[in-house]
């Protein structure tokens, strides 16, 4: 393996640093940040690049789209029921005359928000448990047994049970939309942190034996700071990869629950809920089921490609080539 500074010398931005270093200085390539390298590698993966654009496009579409679209997702219009695609309603209308285009955007907001927040929660839990188990030997056994136990839980039945049990009390406590949102995010978060925890623990265990950690410890750095300053930056790459893939899993899980009729109530459309509502009219109005399904699939597909590309880009063994 060559020195990374030398190996990246083929880029055009090689500058001399002589004005700082005195007469004997030689031309050295400009120090490139690690993220620059990662981006360069990521760019070579076409699928990942397209995936990133599609994903950002959909994010923008659901985030700022509703501001530009005049129709309200919950506004009924009995004169325009069950319409097909037209300029006024690009995705048609449903049986109450609500505009599907607006509903897909509104649903996307909820689905994406659930996906992002649930991913953050699961990432937080996974990293916390992984770091604790890897760094503190006493906690390793119990925490890993806990992880194994969670891995053996029947996730889908358990999620369904959680939703059925806590839907009413949480809706009563926080209001319907926030209550279900909190429930979904928590339920998905606490049932999906295990993979992250395992990966992080493995990496922390390996890092702990490295010299720089020994050095940090020998100058008296407290464990808290060793973890935040030395461990976490070094386990960032696996965390980022599982973060991307986590969004996809969370969106699929939320949609699955909504599709089984156990997610958000009908007034708050999510992609899964829209699909669930459309299935009853599949014979007569098939396109109404296709739009939300297509959005879910596109998001998940693009995220999977981004995750694939990130995995390659963040792996220094591949990046050097």
């Amino acid at each position: 393996m060559t020195d990374p500074v030398v190996s990246s010398g083929n880029d055009p931005q090689t500058v001399t640093a002589s004005h700082q270093m005195g007469p004997e200085a030689v031309a050295v390539p400009a120090a490139r940040s690690q993220w620059r390298d990662v981006w360069d590698q990521f760019r070579t993966h076409k699928g990942a690049l397209i995936g990133a654009f599609v994903f950002l496009g959909i994010c923008l579409f659901v985030a700022i789209g509703p501001w530009f679209w005049p129709l309200d997702p919950t506004e009924t219009n009995m004169r325009a029921r069950n319409e097909g695609m037209s300029w006024a309603h690009p995705m048609g209308t449903d049986r109450l005359g609500r505009d599907t285009f607006a509903r897909v955007m509104a649903g996307g907001r909820i689905s994406m928000a659930v996906g992002l927040v649930a991913m953050l929660l699961s990432l937080f839990l996974g990293t916390l448990i992984g770091v604790l188990a890897g760094y503190f030997k006493r906690l390793d056994g119990p925490l890993m047994r806990l992880t194994d136990m969670f891995l053996a839980l029947p996730i889908l039945p358990l999620l369904l049970v959680l939703v059925v049990l806590f839907r009413e009390p949480l809706s009563a406590a926080f209001g319907i939309e926030t209550g279900i949102f909190v429930l979904m995010v928590t339920a998905i978060g606490i049932t999906s942190w295990m993979q992250t925890a395992r990966i992080v623990r493995g990496d922390v265990l390996a890092l702990k034996e490295r010299e720089f950690i020994l050095a940090a410890r020998s100058i008296g750095t407290p464990p808290r700071r060793i973890i935040t300053r030395h461990m976490l930056p070094n386990v960032l790459s696996p965390i980022m990869v599982s973060a991307t893939l986590g969004i996809a899993t969370a969106i699929i899980t939320e949609s699955t629950l909504s599709f089984l009729g156990l997610g958000f109530p009908p007034d708050f459309p999510t992609w899964g809920r829209l699909l669930f509502d459309a299935v009853s009219f599949l014979q007569s109005y098939p396109m109404r089921a296709v739009w939300p399904g297509l959005m879910i699939s596109l998001v998940v597909l693009s995220i999977n490609y981004v995750g694939d590309g990130l995995r390659d880009a963040l792996d220094p063994r591949i990046r050097g080539r």
Partner: peptide
Amino acid sequence: TMIGFSVPPFFSGVFVIL
């Protein structure tokens, strides 16, 4: 295969019915 495991079963089910 990427499409295969990205498309959730509830959509692929609806799609093949269609």
